[in-house]
């Protein structure tokens, strides 16, 4: 891979990140759609931007699956899902019981 190709990856990543950021910020003030729809789109933009940063800035993709760091990411994502999901479940359940 040469300089031009790697530079293009950063530029593509930057343009995609700027677009997703722009959509998310615009939807916050653009109130012609119901709040629920905008809520979902803004979260979707964040997740897409996470993937864009992983792909274009950290150079991590799913094609080279022999790399240990990919397994580490998946394991960490699993741990995070367990801890965050479990915590939100327990605390919101308690909140509901306190009402």
């Amino acid at each position: 891979m040469n300089l031009g190709r790697e530079l293009r990856k950063y530029v593509i990543g930057m343009v995609m990140a700027l677009t997703l950021t722009g959509i998310a910020f615009a939807l916050t003030i653009w109130n012609y759609w119901p709040v629920r729809t905008r809520f979902i789109i803004i979260i979707a933009c964040a997740i897409l931007q996470l993937l864009v940063h992983f792909r274009y800035f950290l150079h991590i993709d799913l094609e080279k699956s022999h790399r240990d760091d990919l397994q580490l990411i998946l394991f960490s994502a699993f741990i995070i899902a367990l801890m965050v999901g479990g915590m939100l479940w327990v605390i919101f359940n308690l909140n509901m019981r306190m009402m």
Binding site: V35, I42, I43, A46, Q49, L50, H53, F57, L58
Partner: peptide, 24 residues
């Protein structure tokens, strides 16, 4: 480099979940 890019990823979630969804 990976530390710096990681911090930007954390910031995506801060501006989304704290600021944007707070202002929605």
């Amino acid at each position: 480099g990976i530390f710096w890019h990681f911090l930007d990823i954390v910031w995506i979630f801060i501006f989304t979940f704290v600021y944007l969804l707070g202002l929605l």
